[in-house]
Design a protein around this nucleic acid. Sequence first.
RNA 1: GCGAGGGUAGCCAAGCCUGGAAACGGCGGCGGACUCAAGAUCCGCUCCUGUAGAGGUCCAAGGGUUCAAAUCCCUUCCCUCGCACCA
Length: 953
Amino acid sequence: MDYDPQDIEERWRERWAETGRYEADPGDADDDATFITVPYPYPSGGMHMGHVRTYTVPDVYARYRRQRGDNVLFPIAWHVTGTPIIGAVERLKKGEKEQLSVLRDTYDVPEDTLQDLETPMGYARYFIEEHYKRGMKSLGLSIDWRREFTTNDERYSKFVTWQYETLRDRDRLEKGLHPVKYCTNEEQPVTTHDLLEGEEAEYQEYTLIRFGLDDAVVPMATLRPETVRGVTNAYVDPDATYVRATVDGETWLVSETAAEKLRLQAHEVSVTEHVAGADLVGRSVTNPVTGDAVPILPAAFVDPDNATGVVMSVPAHSPDDYLALQEAKADDERMERYGVDPDAVAAIEPVPILDVEGYGDVPARDAVESAGITASDDPELEAVTKELYNREFHGGRLHDDYGEFAGEVIEDVREAYRETGVEAGNFDTMYEFSEEVVCRCGGAVEVAEQDTWFLSYNDEDWKQATKRVVENMECIPENTRGEYDHTIDWLNEWPCIRNYGLGTRLPWDDDFVIEPLSDSTIYMAYYTLAPRLQEIPVGDLDREFFDALFYGADAVDDPDPRALDLREEWQYWYPVDYRFSANDLISNHLTFYLFHHAELFAESEWPAGIVIMGMGLLEGQKMSSSKGHVVLPDEAIQAYGADTVRFFLLNSAEPWQDYDWRADQVESVRDQLERFWNRATELVPEEPASTFEDDRPALEHVDRWLLSKLQRTISEVTEAMEGAETRTASQTAFYDFEESLRWYRRRADVDRPAAQWTLRHALETRLRLLAPFVPFMANELHERLTGRPAEEAPWPDVDPELTDRTVELQEARIEQLTEDVHDIVDVTGTDPDTVRVYVAADWKRAVFEAVAEAGPDVGAVMSEAMSDPALRERGDAVNDLAGELVELVRDLDETTVDTMATLDERAVYEAAAAFLEREFDATVDVYDEDADPPDPGEKAGDAVPFRPAIHLE
RNA sequence: GCGAGGGUAGCCAAGCCUGGAAACGGCGGCGGACUCAAGAUCCGCUCCUGUAGAGGUCCAAGGGUUCAAAUCCCUUCCCUCGCACCA
């Protein structure tokens, strides 16, 4: 019967759906409950091959644990919180070309369905049903479908509400100011998806150095606050409009636009007077740190729309400032026009504040001079500046007048220096974007500061508790452990609410919604409750209900019995044994997951393990739905079958390694599976027999060899699966054993009943090992072979009765001999009629015994051998041979060597003579070297134990 | 810059932790068997040299440790990913 994956797979899908095969419920207390999760998909688009492995790896592990007898729960749900889906719907409604192309071309959304996607939940629902669910079912994922939910469900919101109320009570939430993107036209915060320009823009935190001018503060914005001692002058744009304004009760002088920005950034601002930039030029301002008075000079390069519109000049360390100063000095006329005394300008000299290797006293001068730059419009200036800034930041050491910071490298102390200045009242802070940002409505977007709730991931005791979670957790691969610790150390407060989006409202202020990374930290617990929670009215799911559920009957005055009932269910499944996730989520989602479990649940419910998965490429390149560079699971399953897709994904790399979906490789996998299928069906009997154990025929040497290899396969596959090494496991069960089978078919008369029995036994075992990977094919064949699906059969155990080291070693000799004869045939280009094989003489054998006795040490072997008078005579020859044999034995364990010592080589080769005659179409004669054999090629003397001499005629 | 992971024969890729095989396997290529033929299947070969199972030169580059290094150490070059308030 031909391999027809579509037919086979469809039948199993139906069967699994009809029987609810993977629905898991709590069983007996002594059951082994295994709970496996994976981040729920975010259906802002369709599922493509990049997602497929993410869900297939945990499925394979789940199937493995089930075969090992565990009660396994593998659920899924849908993350619809936040703004991406809303953004996608907006773009669709506006008829954006790019968005329509992604939907129509990349994800094949039918034309008449597009309008259903015009509401957020309609959009989400389409991709959930038509892509994710359909794809997951096609792939045969062993999911308990009764437990699915979305994060927009009202009961889920009740659960998140409980979580955030609890966190607030425990002081893990705090209120504070936070920079947000704010559209000045729409007068509201916007997200990255709302932007027309500047999606890449970053928040830059400027330090404002509070220079003084009479009674007013002139805040100079800088990213390098430590250069404050090197300021020689200030610059304003003489043509721009500045204002005198009251800012938080003080008088400030800033550009007109800066005043507006300061107002957005939580300052009280009222403008009292407009001032022309030119009127400020020529006046002097006082440096708050040094107390020095420096002049304000005119400069056209000052941008009044950036930061405060007033900049300080540090000519010793800024190439721009250095050149601007040179230009000012060279243009007396211009200075005079603005009422600046040219002599005062001429007197300005750069003031160095740090030393940096590779530059002289005045690094900026060196930098521009060595690059041959003379004008501030030189295109090379930017690169030179960047280079200098970098060198100064990473290697610049501050001069002595920096007090406690003297001698320190900028990189290490900039932040501390800044804070000291802020505390002393000399510095302030202002945010600005790194580039221009424009809203889709056309309005300018500025940085605003808004009151926000934060999760206090910076709390030291919370960090410590989370580190204990990591300590007790299994990290796969192990080298990710440090990354969690690193993230915990570095994590700061996290703003956990947004102004809009789908999801749960902040319980005490429904203007805000809890953002996606914050509403998904403990939802694994919700899986254990989801189906039965449906029976409980939403109104009953209050704080008390969940307190009773998660903290027990004693936690509340009047516990709801339904909550206590659910508590048992939760406790049965929790903790999560393995969460399968992706590398880039360590620095946020996964660590949040650990934080919240550490805080909210007892140690016994903490995450037990996380498996990190690598990412997927398509034909060597990153997948991208916007470029259409994706493969949809449906297409691939249609073309190759789900088993092929699964096997390729699991077999081409270990879960934590990156993999590359390549059509030619996938095709080859499909061919391999087909070949396997064809071979297997030849062994399927007319009537399925449940077992052949009762009528096992007498086995021959080769049969025992294959069965012994099979035992080795079982133990290797099992060990690999325990470590979630799906590549090693599938490689071993499939390809490696295939190698053994190839040899077996060559060696054995496979029509014998014993061979048939052996092949069927091996097939049955292998189907069970492969069932997690290719469940459709493995179950089908196993059922045809034995009457029950592979997944109903237990995971194979190693049968010590069938493990036979001696047989394996014997067969290895025959393989070696065959290969050697082949080599000689190839090299000589002859076609022998006679193959003579000479087994090493007895004394050589004795040397091997000495090696086995003394171990891999030539000296020890020699003293052992020399005690034998017969060997002593042969002195040098024994020494040479001992060296050779020690080499041979070095890597082998003692049991193997001892077994080798008992091997009767002559008998082994003679038993294989018939095979060798077939193989080479020649007469094969086996002789003892020391029995005076016919030796036309004078080869017999070359024989060595386990390496017989060969002569071809 | 910081943190992580890499660079292995035409391509993909194992081995590296726990030094001791020109280095698993696949794809592609070449030759052969079977066949009317094609496909499938099977068997060889696929760094260089070689009419005897061998020798030579190799695992980004350069040094070092060692009797012995793809494997350990150092230096350099190159690639990928993350560095947040975004899922």
